[in-house]
Nucleic acid binder design. Structure first.
Lengths: 202, 202
DNA sequence: CTGATTATTGAACGTCTGTTTAGTCCGCGT
DNA sequence: ACGCGGACTAAACAGACGTTCAATAATCAG
């Protein structure tokens, strides 16, 4: 029953909403616009989803499922979503900014998974030790998500189509390079930061 | 004339709009709500700014000026904005997502400034060489901006108040650590990525 | 003090919003 | 054949939206 209706109108509405919400924002999208994109009447979307907020929740659930079912490793699944599904990408960025409950849960979940992943790496010796492991994980995850949120700007400045895979790969490679070799050749900035930090806390 | 009126109603409207736009989004904010926050009538905001879009442009200009006048070094000025002015921070994040012309210009400008800064560092030996300098700069800037856009999530996961300075400092320090020492102790991920990349392009 | 310019408002406009209601259509079990 | 439930719609609702307009209050040059 679910899968049958999921191939028809209900899914079309959800997909249209995902795209619209992603590009125009949730507040900037009207139920009528979604209905028009899906080729149905505005009354049908509330028949299927109860309300506009119900539709948004359905989008949240769909995106979460897409990511969770994408694989085991957080970075892999995210990487795929990041490169492939542009509407999902945009929606996710909006949801993260709008502080949707689903986005909140997703962020926490990614951080948790990444934390254990980094801990494993640390134990096995391919991840360096850190003075503040938690802060490092959270910062690392925010860096992972950065091109997702700022994808358009990154893409534009890297020339070419923001949606094109090659552009995203270029950025990802540059990031990996920084995370492997480091960006700075000496610790002048880290030392300077530590100095300022100590002066402030003293 | 400008400075006189800028201390009174006009400035109050702009500040109220900045805060509202930042938290609720531009489309999610009504002129009436801004007017109520500023303690004036809705008709006055259109008298001063022409339209809602005019108000948004005024906010854009104000934020750009705030950042540009903040200092010479891009990272310093950004760092201050990132830590201090929360409403500006939130507004900037929204503007970057909504692809405002001002946000577009700002991003390009930061990238340009950072590019020359990194080139200097490379010449002076405190920045490592890169296989793709442009991609590295853009990625680095997106990482700089990441805690700005995802500040709430980062702050929440790092415990404590997201607006509190100490939280932001913790994240910044962790980031600096990764950029100085690297995150990965060997090049297994970089090598793996390169391998996949070559396979795909072949 | 007068006149003109500006700041500010209340009320109204037309449009768009999310949602409701009453109803039609169609497939399916009995 | 019948009726029943779900998909679907046109029309309407009340409210919020951005904006306009005429009018009042404040400001300031002469």
């Amino acid at each position: 029953m679910r899968s049958v209706s999921d191939l028809t109108a209900r899914a079309r509405i959800r997909d249209a909403a995902l795209a619209r919400f992603g590009t125009d924002g949730i507040a900037g999208t009207s139920v009528r616009a979604v209905a028009a994109d899906a080729g149905i009447s505005p009354a049908l979307v509330v028949h299927h989803f109860g309300s506009k907020d119900g539709l948004r929740q359905a989008c949240d659930d769909y995106v979460l499922d897409s990511i969770r079912s994408g694989g085991e490793a957080a970075s892999e699944a995210l990487g795929e979503v990041l490169q492939a599904a542009t509407p999902v990408r945009r929606y996710l960025a909006r949801a993260l900014l709008d502080d949707t409950p689903a986005a909140r849960a997703l962020f926490a979940e990614i951080v948790e998974r990444t934390e254990t992943w980094l801990e494993t790496g640390e134990a096995e010796g391919w991840v360096r030790t850190s003075a503040d492991a938690r802060a490092r994980t959270v910062t690392y995850v925010s860096w992972l998500l950065a091109p997702l949120v700022l994808g358009d700007h990154v893409g534009r400045l890297l020339g070419g189509d923001p949606a094109e895979t090659a552009t995203a790969v270029r950025g990802a490679r540059a990031g990996l390079e920084m995370l492997t070799n480091g960006l700075f050749a000496d610790d002048r900035w880290l030392a300077a930061f530590t100095a300022i930090d100590e002066r402030n806390s003293r």
